[in-house]
Design a protein around this nucleic acid. Sequence first.
DNA 1: GAGGCTATTATCCAATAGTCGAATCCGGTT
DNA 2: AACCGGATTCGACTATTGGATAATAGCCTC
Lengths: 185, 185
Amino acid sequence: MVEENADADLLFLDLNMPGVSGFSALAWIRSNHASLPTVIVSAADDPAIIRRSIQHGASGFIPKSSPIGTLEAGIRAVLDGEVWVPEGIDLRDDRLDSEEAKIAMALSSLTPHQFRVLMMLGEGLLNKQIAFQLGVSEATIKAHVTAVLRKMNVNNRTQAVLAVQQLRISAPSLLDSGSGGDAAT
Amino acid sequence: MVEENADADLLFLDLNMPGVSGFSALAWIRSNHASLPTVIVSAADDPAIIRRSIQHGASGFIPKSSPIGTLEAGIRAVLDGEVWVPEGIDLRDDRLDSEEAKIAMALSSLTPHQFRVLMMLGEGLLNKQIAFQLGVSEATIKAHVTAVLRKMNVNNRTQAVLAVQQLRISAPSLLDSGSGGDAAT
DNA sequence: GAGGCTATTATCCAATAGTCGAATCCGGTT
DNA sequence: AACCGGATTCGACTATTGGATAATAGCCTC
């Protein structure tokens, strides 16, 4: 849709759209339509998610629970070139997880069709099914898939899908990174 | 490890172990070793995660930040057959998301080897690599994979991996669907 | 108009994935 | 001891995937 509406002034983007996992779309749109301010509208209000949205290039974040007035103020602010987040959200000290940044960058380099194909890989579809849905030959899809694997630096579609999954809405800040044995007794 | 220590009295399980995504291991262990009380020990303290742990059959949840005394009390309670969660966590109204329950049930039906193979699929490994790591022929792995696909009711490994990913630690309560509304931290 | 990038398709080939049937092993029963 | 159901193992066969190469066409830029 973004491709077909290149003259839009503003984009409202819902995280967790079916068929597009988490921040993938945001990361791609930010690079391929840099002049299109994007506001995340989400039911989530987790500070970690808000921060990640901004890190991925969103111009604003407006929880669905916001009163109309806030929505309006947010839109005005973003159209004025500002970054808008709910009150009380601290954006300092923000740096994107390096692994996540790497994946986002790879996504950015994809062409529109390649991105589309990748999202469909993420639904576990066969090349043949993707070809049918997009109305092109399977050979074309294979070419796209090959290009995607190369750009994402992975060896097969499953790994590509797993990489994309890392941009899902989950709360990395809540996890731990250390690990050690767990044992029983 | 659980398979090799069938006589254990209690299992401490860390969510997000490398190679086992989220609640997968818990779901499987609960069905295949029903008499083994399992306590989740995690750095996370999100009420949603704690609730999901109990829903998946954990006997207790102890945040890593807990003082020793609490840890001890929790262990005693669980060994006495009780369910232990941090103070202030409300467990009422608990029903597992139906899609998630379906996946957990499918996982439960897997044999030890099949489960192991599935977890390795989740790392994007080739059949050949799995075969090597487990010291069996590739044909054997293929057979296991086929069995897994059948039990999980999917058509290919990518779909199987995606299903397992749904049991990752992410906070469904933070996404749309209404209800909850606990902003952590 | 030339050069560069994307998209499309095709063909050929090697590797990987998935299905089927069958042999073997193992624990528990009869 | 014979039997049974299952888990595990494996080889043969087929389908899908991924890589390499090439050709055509459209689009944008210089």
